[in-house]
């Protein structure tokens, strides 16, 4: 085989890779820019802290209520899921037999693959109707907690796995029990990384729409939910309803604005998580 031929093959392969990869990298970037370009006219401080009364179909002032609802749901979901996730991960590392460990891993890998809308359906059947909690903050939070649970468990497991074995053994050599090892060795060492996991879970909860559509949200009319059992409005569903129901360009620009805020929120959680992770590494 002659060398010109070989060089030509390399060039062609590289060419194909560039040809396929450049759109793959550029289109997402362009799309992201497009969102912010569309959102620019409405994005200002008043948009974020203003509230809408609902009568104007989202056209009026701002998205404060939606923002609040989204954050409230995400925080509650993590607050519900975190203790279970931590408990499960610690059980895995301390008491679980190898058989149980395999079973748990399989369970959570499966759970992670379940589409979020399926959790939404379950929430609708069990929480909203069977438990008669209604379309409410608490139903939505529990459903979202199920969505983020596998993420949190797998993250916590990965964190605990990074603790050097010798570190734990040194503790055991001192005669520390499981409680002391967890409380005095593991948690102080890895709490930053655990927090990273929680932030990522929050970002995930913030970006889910389908599971809360039937279980927690109404289109408008709520600013601050009166109780755990009243419905909320969220940014995600707000964008969805505006996109679906309206043809008014002004309304759609509100949707773009909300989308930009949501993207920024999720991205900043991601960046924060990354920073914390780096901090925890050192």
């Amino acid at each position: 085989m002659n060398s010109q031929h070989l060089l030509a093959r390399d060039t062609i392969s590289k060419g194909i890779v560039w040809l396929l990869a450049v759109p793959a990298l550029l289109i997402p970037t362009i799309v992201l820019c497009y969102i912010f370009w569309q959102a620019a006219p409405v994005l200002d401080w008043g948009f974020i802290v203003g509230t809408t009364d609902g009568a104007g179909f989202g056209v009026s002032d701002g998205i404060f209520a939606q923002l609040l609802g989204s954050l409230l749901l995400a925080v509650m979901a993590c607050a519900i899921a975190a203790p279970f996730a931590l408990g499960t991960a610690l059980y895995y590392r301390t008491y679980a037999s190898p058989r149980q460990q395999r079973l748990l891993t399989a369970m959570f890998n499966m759970l992670q693959g379940i589409p979020p809308i399926v959790f939404g359906l379950c929430g609708l059947v069990v929480l909203v109707n069977l438990f008669a909690w209604g379309v409410s903050l608490i139903s939505g939070a529990v459903v979202l907690a199920m969505v983020v649970l596998p993420l949190l468990v797998l993250n916590t497991l990965a964190t605990l796995e990074r603790i050097p074995h010798g570190y734990t053994e040194a503790g055991m050599a001192l005669g520390l029990g499981n409680g002391a090892i967890i409380g005095r060795l593991w948690l102080p060492r890895s709490w930053l990384n655990l927090l990273t996991g929680v932030l990522l879970a929050m970002a995930r909860a913030l970006s889910e729409t389908a599971p809360i559509m039937f279980t927690a949200t109404v289109f408008s009319g709520v600013v601050w939910p009166d109780s755990l059992f009243s419905p909320v409005t969220t940014l995600q569903t707000h964008i969805f309803y505006l996109a679906q129901e309206s043809n008014d360009p002004q309304v759609i620009s509100i949707a773009w604005g909300s989308a930009a805020v949501l993207v920024l929120l999720v991205a900043s959680l991601g960046v924060l998580a990354r920073l914390l992770y780096k901090l925890g590494e050192d």
Binding site: T209, I252, V266
Partner: peptide, 22 residues
Amino acid sequence: RFAMELMAGVPSVVYGLLGMWL
């Protein structure tokens, strides 16, 4: 890579909006 990681986290409803209006 970091940009792609962020893109992976963009909420699906935002893609919906994009799909519908772009």
